[in-house]
């Protein structure tokens, strides 16, 4: 088991490195001068050259990458071109908000998805199954930014129960786990949860149906297991695949949804990416993408390990 974890870690390192290289290059391949955003329109050539040197844009790309990576390894993601504040702090702040949103959405979406999927799988072909499947399809198909706006219209505008935008009083910097703040989380979390809910329902339904049709389930009944004991076996067999799907979904949510965070003005990584892109804020963009990619890789690593803990056959792979 330990060897398996080490092996997985070894696989993860080149992935992270290539992601770093890729996001570094991607930004450099996009057209447009990164200095355009900070320079006044009538700036002189000398001033532009000075700034270019100050930011290191005049040096060859490999050197830029090497220097950047070196700094990154020391926790320095540079300074935002637009605001001048350190990227690491900006990203940490935004990612923390998105993590909160993602976990809240995961709590809702995964719970519902697992429950609906298991029920639909167990009662395949009945009206319960059809209902659960319809909910799942609706969840995957409805555009979530549209759903977000509809929820805002219903619960904020009409009923006035929940706030429409923002992350609470005092801005995003003063989050607390009390009702005054948590109520800001509800609408964006519900909106975010809808797609993973649908995807997990459909996956778990298929998984459950597949497992229930396997011989060992009949054998479990044949040896006198109760319905609830058989259920335990079904869940454990479904867990590795379900975990993989959930890990992937959580990864997507941790990336932050630009659309949802824009609709709800949620100060997360999606919103940060959005502004970084529009302001051509290169260091901020690179930093954000890199941190999110590392999150994604780390999450998948955890899923791999969890799967191996549950299913002994995976450890050999």
């Amino acid at each position: 088991m330990f060897a398996y974890i080490l092996r997985r870690l070894a696989y993860a390192i080149p992935i992270v490195l290539s992601v770093a290289l890729l996001c570094f290059l991607l930004v450099h391949m996009t057209p447009g001068d990164p200095l355009v955003a900070v320079l006044p329109a009538d700036a002189s050539q000398e001033l532009a050259q000075q700034l270019r040197v100050a930011y290191g844009f005049d040096r060859p790309l490999p050197v830029q990458f090497g220097l950047w990576l070196w700094r990154v390894l020391h926790g320095d993601l540079g300074a935002s071109i637009a605001t001048g504040r350190p990227v690491a702090a900006e990203v940490a702040h935004a990612v923390a908000n998105t993590v909160m949103l993602a976990f809240a959405a995961a709590l809702i979406g995964f719970t519902l998805g697992l429950a609906l999927g298991l029920i639909a799988g167990y009662f395949r072909g009945t009206w319960v199954d059809k209902l659960a499947t319809s909910v799942a399809i609706a969840g995957v198909s409805v555009p979530h930014y549209w759903l977000g706006m509809v929820l805002v219209i219903i619960f904020s505008v009409e009923l006035n129960w929940l706030p429409a935008v923002g992350a609470g009083a005092g801005g995003s910097g003063q989050w607390a786990w009390d009702w005054a703040h948590v109520r800001y989380l509800i609408l964006p979390a519900v909106t975010t949860s809808v797609i993973p809910m649908g995807i997990i329902t459909r996956n778990v339904r298929a998984l459950t149906g597949d497992i229930l049709s396997q011989d060992f389930v009949e054998a479990l009944y044949a040896k006198g297991m109760r319905q609830s004991q058989v259920f335990r076996h079904v869940v454990k067999n479904a867990a590795p695949t379900a975990l993989a799907v959930m890990g992937l979904q959580l990864g997507y949510m941790l990336g932050g949804s630009i659309l949802i965070e824009t609709v709800f003005s949620w100060p997360g990584s999606g919103l940060l990416l959005n502004s970084a892109i529009f302001q051509r804020d290169l260091p901020l963009l690179q930093g954000t993408i890199l941190v999110l990619a590392i999150f994604f890789v780390a999450l998948n690593l955890m899923v791999d390990v969890a799967q191996a803990l549950i299913d002994p056959r995976i450890r050999r792979a």
Binding site: Q214, E218, N237, I310
Partner: peptide, 11 residues
């Protein structure tokens, strides 16, 4: 059963 590989729970 006919196929013990399938009749035993793999996990």
């Amino acid at each position: 059963f006919q196929e013990p590989a399938l009749a035993l729970d793999p996990v």
